[in-house]
């Protein structure tokens, strides 16, 4: 039985470091790997990449639409472009380029949404990337990968190089504990079972995975057996894991650092809602539903009900044990 344990005081890490290290390591043996950015060499952690491969870092300046178009052109020419920019500007500003030039054209561009979610805390909603799931999920042929820690971030980068295809990767900045082993792999389109359980399933993604595991541990102390699924891929969606969760555990809570209109919870609900009678289980969808007020990332995660305590409470509620 799978049980991932994350201590409450476990050390935490910024995934951008693992992202950059893995990209550089791969670029040493694969000279088709290039990086594209928007005046974000530092914030995308590309300084070392630039120093080692000055010709392979294309900084187009503060011009995100051009940046994604240039990425598509590089892919068209035969390169493997990692297009890196703060999540909100990459996805929001260049959404039509992502739709037409990347997904619809099937150019193998790797879109790296840096510092996603509410990592930019006090810089406010303009700098939060919490609509990215809702904006990108409808685009056919675009993978959406949400690594929950450094090892999974490295795996996402390796997958993108081994099998280049239109992909969006969330590269987290808000520090999170490790929830997986070093050198872990990620299977395309599959959730990771982080903890087995039979009474309720918590499907969490990114920052919320460690919090879901803490919630599962505290539910266990109350005699509730919670399964935790780490939604590493939002597209393709692991419909089988969702159906199993509904049929086997009978209640589902989802948690994401994203807007609930069209995000992970909505994706899960659309699968659950179409199940046979008796399998359409109760759900709670945790996430954002308004523009964030001023505050740090940790403050805002609490504000939006995205702490382990909130997840625990939602599980109790969905089990009618509150």
């Amino acid at each position: 039985m799978t049980t991932t344990t994350v201590l409450n005081d476990a050390p935490t890490f910024d995934n951008r470091q693992d992202f950059a290290d893995e990209l550089i390591a791969l670029a040493r043996t694969n000279d088709r790997i290039v990086a594209v950015c928007n005046d974000s060499v530092g914030s995308s952690n590309l300084t070392k990449f630039r120093d080692e491969f000055p010709d392979r870092l294309i900084n187009v300046g503060i011009a995100e639409q051009n940046m994604v178009g240039v990425g598509a052109g590089l892919a068209n020419a035969g390169l493997i472009p990692f297009v890196c920019a703060a999540g909100p500007f990459l996805t929001g500003r260049s959404l039509e380029q992502i739709k037409a030039d990347v997904a619809y054209s099937q150019h193998n561009v790797i879109l790296c949404g840096m510092s996603p979610g509410m990592a930019y805390g006090e810089l406010g909603p303009t700098h939060h990337s919490v609509e990215d799931f809702s904006w990108l999920r409808p685009l056919p042929g675009l993978d959406i990968v949400v690594p929950a820690d450094g090892a999974q971030t490295r795996a996402a980068v390796r997958n993108a190089v081994a099998d280049p295809r239109p992909t969006y990767i969330r590269v987290g900045r808000f520090k999170v504990p490790h929830v997986s082993e070093d050198n872990v792999g990620l299977e395309r389109g599959k959730f990771v079972v982080a903890r087995e359980g039979t009474d309720v399933t918590i499907i969490a993604t990114g920052t919320e995975v460690s919090r879901a595991l803490w919630a599962a541990a505290s539910l266990a102390s109350e005699g509730v057996s919670a399964r935790v699924l780490n939604a590493t891929y939002l597209s393709p969606l692991d419909e089988e894991a969702i159906k199993d969760a509904a049929r086997q555990t009978g209640a589902i809570v989802t948690a994401e650092e994203a807007n609930v209109a069209g995000g992970l919870g909505a994706a899960v609900a659309s699968v659950v809602g179409q199940l046979e009678d008796g399998a359409r289980v109760p759900m709670r969808i945790l996430g954002l539903n308004h523009f964030a007020p001023t505050g740090s990332t940790a403050f805002l995660l609490d504000h939006f009900g995205l702490t382990a305590d909130h997840i625990t409470a939602a599980a109790r509620e969905v089990l009618h044990r509150d």
Partner: peptide, 13 residues
Amino acid sequence: FMAPLSALNGHPN
């Protein structure tokens, strides 16, 4: 400025 729930966010509103 930038304190929790302040009107004065990091970017103007």
